[in-house]
């Protein structure tokens, strides 16, 4: 699971079965100091509350589909939490 910043949204009305109702957000993986790491990806919103600019954390591969209410929705990244703070331990 890694930190990411929501930078946009994607709407795709024509899509494969199973993706109905899934909200897609473009997220940019970042480190703790908001420095970009790697490329942005499109992630399903597993908490259905993430908005643009928010810091979230995401999971990939099979865990991504487990983050959605329906069983085995075909997604490869999903937002599983909205970050309030990353406190220095």
């Amino acid at each position: 699971m890694e930190l990411a910043r929501v930078i946009g949204t994607v709407v795709a009305t024509q899509q494969v079965e199973g993706l109905e109702g899934v909200k897609f957000l473009i997220v940019q993986p970042v480190d703790r100091n908001d420095k970009k790491i790697g490329e942005p990806v499109v992630a399903a919103d597993g908490v259905a509350m993430a908005g643009p600019g928010e810091l979230v954390y995401i999971v990939a591969s099979r865990e991504a589909s487990l983050a959605l209410p329906e069983k085995f929705v075909p997604v490869d990244h999903a937002i599983v939490g909205i970050v309030d703070a990353v406190s220095e331990v």
């Binding site: 908490v47 983050a67 939490g81 309030d84 703070a85 406190s87």
Partner: peptide, 9 residues
């Protein structure tokens, strides 16, 4: 660090 999050899976 600790990640504080109230809205999550």
């Amino acid at each position: 660090g600790t990640v504080v999050s109230t809205i999550n899976a």
